[in-house]
């Protein structure tokens, strides 16, 4: 009897161990500070949006320093990512539907697609800038959003975006009415919108190839002979003779073999630079050629590496890397300078 009671007591005690749990000893309550640290999402109804404000003017300053190197001064660049700004009109702002999405005249920009302003705020806050996500202050996020909206002529140049007026700005988004959830591809029981029939004999067809790979694209994916198993009933087709580019593969391997390459990779240098070839930024080989034999090369490159640089190698500027330790920076520079 005593044992039976002990067991009951034990079972009784279990829920108290971890609240509602059926799994005693597993997990623990989250503290308010922990929830605050991670609960950063902002919904379309602005739940989760922290109070704050930012002007178009301030946004431009943040933009020029931290965003323009990838997205272009006016958010128009497609060098690194798809363009953010363009393709929207005053009529779209009025209607809440972007006309060029119907006609398909221009490639789609972010502002053309954007139907909820929270989406933009939330994403910039959680993931931008590209190489230093979550480093923007709340007011900077408001400012960058304001600047982008101004580039799209959605708010005026003297506008200050805040948690107080963001709902009104939502009502000016050019594509605010352009999204639909009326389709069968979300709900578990959703119905398909397209279907075929399982015809087995003498089925209707167009009878010929409506499209095939053009001859000039034959080597565009490298030598296909090197991409197929070399045993079995088939081999890969040799496309090396027509504009194959196996060099890219070799360079990637070379980069990995270099002893310092791990550092370069970790600091995201190789995101924009290749050793042998130009990517977004110049090839390290070319940087080395330009600075070869110059006594102050290391100091000059150190300055550019830490504070950023623009105009030296083309339209895309290099973002600043203020947090890069000097020792690492010097190791990287010496490595780059040794590339020739």
């Amino acid at each position: 009897m005593f044992r039976f009671f002990s067991l009951l007591l034990l079972l009784n005690w279990v829920p108290a161990f971890a609240g509602t749990t059926s799994y005693p000893g597993v997990g623990r309550p989250a503290t308010p500070a922990e929830i605050k640290a991670w609960d950063i999402d902002v919904r379309p109804d602005f739940r989760g949006l922290p109070p704050g404000s930012g002007s178009v003017e301030k946004g431009q300053k943040v933009w020029d320093g931290k965003c323009a190197s990838c997205h272009g001064t006016f958010g128009e660049s497609n060098e690194v990512f798809t363009p953010l700004v363009g393709g929207t009109t005053a009529a779209d702002v009025k209607a809440g539907r972007v006309g060029t999405l119907v006609t398909g005249d221009v490639s789609r920009t972010t502002l053309m697609k954007l139907s909820t302003i929270s989406t933009l705020w939330d994403y910039i806050n959680r993931a931008m800038p590209w190489n230093a996500p979550k480093s923007l202050a709340t007011d900077e996020v408001y400012a960058v959003v304001a600047y982008m909206l101004n580039l799209g002529d959605i708010v005026p140049a003297d506008f200050v975006l805040s948690d107080g007026n963001i709902a009104e700005v939502q009502q000016r988004l050019p594509n605010r009415n352009g999204m639909t959830r009326k389709h069968g591809l979300w709900d578990v029981k959703g119905k398909p919108d397209v279907a075929n029939v399982a015809c087995m004999k003498n089925c209707p067809t167009n009878g010929k190839a409506a499209s095939e790979l053009p001859e000039h694209a034959r080597g565009a994916h490298g030598n296909l002979a090197d991409q197929q198993r070399a045993v079995g009933g088939t081999r890969g087709t040799d496309t090396a003779t027509a504009a194959a580019k196996p060099a890219a593969v070799k360079i990637a391997a070379l980069e990995v073999e270099l002893p310092i390459a791990e550092l370069a990779k970790r600091k995201a240098c190789l995101t924009c630079h290749g050793v042998e070839r130009k990517l977004v930024g110049p090839a390290f080989k070319d940087v080395a050629s330009r600075y070869k034999g110059k006594a102050d090369a290391e100091e000059r490159l150190l300055e550019r590496l830490r504070k950023g640089s623009s105009g030296a190698w083309g339209p895309i500027s290099m973002p600043p890397n203020p947090d890069l330790p000097e020792a690492d920076a010097r190791r990287l520079i010496q490595w780059v300078l040794g590339a020739v």
């Binding site: 999402d41 919904r43 379309p44 109804d45 539907r97 972007v98 006309g99 999405l101 119907v102 789609r108 972010t110 697609k113 954007l114 139907s115 909820t116 929270s118 989406t119 939330d122 994403y123 993931a127 352009g178 999204m179 639909t180 959830r181 389709h183 069968g184 591809l185 979300w186 959703g190």
Partner: peptide, 27 residues
């Protein structure tokens, strides 16, 4: 409510011929 995050409201949306985008198309 759904969150309309970047990868369900701006990307991974299907543009239809009438110019609307399907959101949350997932299956």
């Amino acid at each position: 409510q759904p969150w309309a995050t970047k990868d369900e409201a701006l990307h991974y949306v299907d543009l239809m011929p009438d110019g609307t985008h399907r959101q949350y198309s997932s299956i």
